[in-house]
Design a protein around this nucleic acid. Structure first.
Length: 485
DNA sequence: ATGTGC
């Protein structure tokens, strides 16, 4: 397959429209040659299917961490023309709606924390429930849960689960407008009720990390983002909208399949690409329901941050304020948003699907808070639990080329089933501890699925987006403690 | 990813 790619640059590869009948635009893969050669073959199939969707603009994109997903590849980006016949597709957002990353600083160093590391991780493991079916400490009825879906993180600040300043460090200020609760099923609400403040499973995790001075690539921007001291401790976590978002996605996939062809005459190459015109009742209903899951996931991460602050305060016997437990940012990587982008010199409102892809807005965009606006938005990239993670910054290049988007993580290279056969969770935990990473997990099989070699090399992935200039390296973090979902 | 699958 690699031989069929047209090389645009060292980090951009194109699949022409002639590859498959029905492609409306070419597909573009952002990757180093090595990553492009090793790309899962399903990705080529899926990204060219995406290129056939009505209203798609410029290109169907796949980021270097791309791998096969439901309909769209994970790592997929597609912008739709909403003023014409553009569609919205749940497969382009993902089941885990608004799944994302949150990064929190401390004013502690590695030496400060080392004697307390195990206790911190053990406490976090107890205070932030993880695993399939986990329920949180927040007890809610349906009416209160509905309020969460409309009010987002503002609800948390009201209830004492967050600081007012946390809101401005969250995409959309932790509250996206335009939710219509009546478009969310009772079944989804019932599933979501008990899930606030829970991590989930799979590749969801909570990590304590170190910013070693040799891995600070841009000192000035790092300082702007709050990474200011050598060997500074940060906390990074990854989770989403749990069973709630999953149910919203499932409900609308089913609905779209029933109307797509019959009512709207849309023919697709894969039923996993179920979609509806954005400007149709069904499309609008999904958009209004999906936004409820966006808010729920912001609340989930906000409540988890509250628990993290409680744990650090308790173990280190100091106020969270004094420990400097402040947010760097909260970014989503499973979402679709209306944004203004320049296309052929003309500014247009488009619906940008990002599925396992992160917003990477460059300097000056009004969506970025003032504190960061001059440098570009922070981008939080979670690597595998054994390797490392990154803080990047958005660029003008991303605005010009990828609708302000970049990668989201390492990207799997091995199926979960294969990883489980190749690695033993118990042994992995021991090996990681010997290497200075203390891990707690709900299930050892789940830990084995997340073994480092089951993922692409995070440094290769970051190298690709950095060289393509769709984001730039700021800091690389090394894990020392991990609560595995 | 997911009260994990027909």
């Amino acid at each position: 397959m690699f031989e069929q790619l047209k090389k645009i640059s060292d980090t951009v590869w194109e699949i022409p429209k002639t590859f498959k009948p029905g492609m409306r635009v070419p597909a573009r893969i952002y990757a180093t040659e090595k990553l492009a050669r090793e790309m899962d073959l399903q990705v080529y199939e899926q990204i060219t299917n995406v290129a056939t969707l009505p209203g798609i603009l410029k290109y169907a994109y796949c980021m270097p961490d791309g791998h096969s997903g439901y309909g769209f590849p994970i790592g997929g980006v597609a912008a739709m023309d909403i003023n014409n016949d553009g569609v919205i597709s749940p497969g382009g957002i993902g089941f885990d709606i608004n799944c994302g990353m949150r990064l929190v600083t401390t004013n502690l160093t590695y030496d400060d924390i080392k004697p307390h590391l195990k206790q911190l991780v053990d406490e976090l493991f107890h205070k932030v429930p993880a695993g399939v079916g986990a329920s949180g400490f927040v007890k809610l009825n349906a009416a209160e849960f509905k309020k969460i879906t409309t009010d987002g993180s503002e609800w948390c600040v009201e209830k004492g689960y967050g600081w007012k300043e946390d809101l401005e460090f969250t995409e959309e200020n932790g509250r996206i407008e335009g939710v219509d609760v009546s478009k969310i099923s009772d079944k989804a609400i019932k599933r979501g009720l008990s899930q606030i403040g829970t991590l989930g499973s799979g590749n969801h995790y909570l990590e304590i990390q170190v910013a070693k001075p040799e891995f600070v690539f841009d000192k000035k921007i790092a300082e702007t983002f709050g990474i200011t001291i050598p060997n500074q401790i940060v906390i990074m976590f990854h989770c989403g909208s749990r069973g709630f978002g999953h149910q919203v996605a499932s409900d609308y996939l089913e609905k779209f399949l029933s109307v797509m062809e019959r009512k709207y005459g849309i023919k697709i190459l894969d039923r996993e690409l179920a979609c509806a015109p954005f400007n149709s009742p069904e499309g609008q209903d999904y958009f209004a329901a999906m936004k409820g899951a966006i808010n729920m996931s912001f609340v989930n991460r906000q409540v988890i941050l509250h628990r993290i602050r409680e744990v650090f305060s308790k173990v280190l016997k100091q106020d969270a304020e004094k420990l400097g437990l402040r947010m760097v940012y909260d970014v989503a990587h499973n979402t679709a948003k209306i944004e203004k982008h320049k296309i052929d010199g003309e500014t247009k409102e488009v619906l940008v699907h990002r599925k396992g892809a992160t917003r990477a807005f460059g300097p000056g965009r009004e969506e970025i808070i003032e504190k960061y606006r001059k440098v570009g938005q922070p981008i939080i990239i979670g690597g595998s639990m054994e390797t490392g993670s990154y803080l990047l910054v958005g660029t003008e290049g991303a605005m010009n080329e990828t609708f302000g988007s970049t990668c989201h993580g390492s990207g799997r290279t091995m199926s979960r089933t294969k990883a489980k056969h190749m690695y033993r969770g118990e042994q992995l935990q021991k090996e990681m501890e010997q290497r200075g990473i203390y891990v707690r997990t709900v299930t050892f099989s789940g830990l084995a699925e997340e073994a480092g070699p089951a993922y692409k090399d995070i440094d290769d992935v970051i190298d690709a987006v950095h060289r393509a200039d769709i984001s730039r390296k700021v800091v690389r973090f090394i894990p020392i403690g991990n609560v595995k979902g």
